[in-house]
Write a protein that binds this DNA or RNA. Structure first.
Lengths: 214, 214, 214, 214
DNA sequence: CATGAATGAGTGTTCATTCAT
DNA sequence: AATGAATGAACACTCATTCAT
């Protein structure tokens, strides 16, 4: 038996404050792999290293756990993006570039890209969740992008365009990438960064006034 | 009771050849409402007006029924779109406009827009279905759009652009619309046609060589 | 292997119409042994010779099954007693004797005496059941006895007494016997018939006018 | 911080000797409301103002706690009744009246009337408890009443009657009242005192020799 | 072909009990 | 003594699938 190093903790070590996050992380894995309905709480518990009963100390039901996963995954990233966009100086297109790049990297490398797929898949069964996601996530993303567009137009950088539709058209390839990564990537992997780069090039032509008459 | 001859048809004659299609139609409704996992075959049978056992005369399992729904919903529309694109004369952008309009209308009005959501949601649980859908649907859609792009470039109508990425960027708003319609439309309805129209305007700037220097 | 006789039926023999009654009978046994909460539907199913799922073909929940048990056990006996009391001629005390004897025998020999105990035990958890039982059973029993009392008084056989209380005092020893049989009989068996006989003797002194001055 | 001396009492001094009684009192409430099986120890702990673990410092299991509730509720009242009956002078019927009145008031106003219902409901699951209750409660109640009957007969006040049955017939309305109060009182409240008063009137006719020939 | 009664494995949830602190 | 986080066995209920008719 090898000696245990100094960080060794008895396996019953109570880490009460970390538990909810550990459970949420495990749940995200399982929901990501199986979808909401097919995910088994047994698996979540096992992956979190706790018993099934422990789940219910922190989350009242599978549905509540699901909502916690959505919140935990989305909100920090959203806040990061909003901070990025808020006080920044310089050309608006550069800001938009940075936002797109950040989103692209997140989609390419992190688990959170699974969330929209999960929410969309279960929107019919959990209308309340759909409303929450629309209000707390989609509206904020759209508001963020819409603010950039308005800023660009106000500064004469962007052509006048219908904000609402353009925002959706900016976001659509991100959504598609997130979906693809969690559905068809095993069949045909997607180079998200490259796709987003081309998206950015296209957006330049669509948005910038200076592109019009080179 | 006299024996009936062989041509005798009971007046409650079941249109036995229509059964599978009726079942598939009912299944599409139910899958659309609940998602694959939460859909109950009881409901499918009831909506199709048959018994649960009858389902198994035509489909070996829930999974096979699901695949049949996907095939039945997608392939006819896909063939229609391919026919539209194939032999047509005239400017490529006009062709693309027609394809987009057709897709937009389908998304706005028909049930089939639910399919991508279902496939994406269950891709993890049914990798074979994901592969099938990628091969038989996505590849063909991408091939269709890619062919148009190549045609446009060959005729000097379109600027040279990376085919593969551009195809995805053309398709992304369609996917987003399909998703939205089946997830958040109850919360915030989407005017698909208008969104696609703006998309078309943007594409004009991105694709057409003549837009560059008016 | 001994030859099976002519009544032998394949074990999958469907006896669709009998199923609910078989299940109710099994459930009565299990509820009687364990009480409502401690009764396991697995046991009920096993005792009824069906699978657990089959229970749910006929009863929507454990609670509904419980109500069905109560109804099935009580109502036939109640109707029998009411028929006994209704059209009968002769002295009222003789009628009352017959009712008491019948009740005593039922308590002594049949399963149904378990029902009041079950209902009383669960009245707090199922107020609706309590209301049903009060309305459909207790009120009818009290009405039956009250009718006899009124008849006896009208005919000058019985002394004038407060109907409502007297009815309860007539019923109380029956209830006690039913409770005892299903609680303490293993510890100290009760001779229900003898107790009821003494009860009848006491009632004679209480009720009859002719006993007063022999 | 100065060291406290040995007589120092923290101001939050727990009355540690009262703990078990507080727990028993809380448990009685919860058992009364829900029945044994449906009662949650969480609720008991919460109502007693202690943690769930503390329960197990004083009671080895839910079953032991249940027995403690039964003992605590019944024995003091029983002793009170026995003291009432023992040394008293005067007519036996007056004594019996007082016993009945005391029992009636207890049933009408106190929690303890819930106990017989609980014991009877769980007698099947806890035969040992049933035996204990029969031995320590029922036998003593019957002994108490039987002693009164014997005294009355010995003094020529009461007619000769079978002690054992008559005791049960005296007790039955009390049991019924206790049951009713905890089952159907919400549906149809019972005036226990009035019922017991009528019971007393009936008993007078049954028991007293002088009533026979006024 | 068609039925629908029957199955039984599977899962979310509860709660008495334990035990490290 | 007291806590309360953690456990895990237990159970009601669901539903895809089967099969005798």
């Amino acid at each position: 038996m090898p000696p245990s190093d100094s960080t060794d903790q008895p396996r019953w070590r109570r880490r009460k404050d970390d538990r909810p996050q550990e459970i949420v992380a495990a749940a995200m894995d399982v929901f990501a792999e199986r979808g909401y309905a097919a995910a088994r709480l047994d698996d979540v518990a096992h992956r979190a290293g706790v018993s099934k009963g422990t789940l219910y100390l922190y989350f009242a039901s599978k549905e509540e756990l699901f909502k916690a996963v959505v919140r935990a995954a989305i909100l920090p990233n959203l806040e990061r993006a909003e901070r990025l966009a808020e006080g920044a100086p310089g050309p608006t297109m550069a800001l938009l570039d940075r936002i797109l790049a950040m989103a692209g990297e997140m989609i390419a490398t992190s688990q959170v890209a699974i969330i929209p797929k999960l929410v969309i898949a279960e929107a019919g069964n959990f209308p309340e969740l759909a409303a929450f996601y629309h209000r707390e996530v989609i509206q904020r993303v759209f508001g963020l992008l819409g603010g950039l567009l308005e800023r660009g137009m106000a500064r004469g950088e962007f052509r006048p365009l219908p904000i609402d539709h353009t925002v959706r058209l900016i976001a659509a390839p991100l959504l598609m990438s997130a979906m693809w990564r969690n559905s068809f990537d095993a069949v045909a992997p997607l180079d998200v960064a490259a796709l987003i780069a081309t998206h950015r090039d296209h957006l330049r032509r669509v948005l910038l006034v200076t592109e019009d008459a080179p």
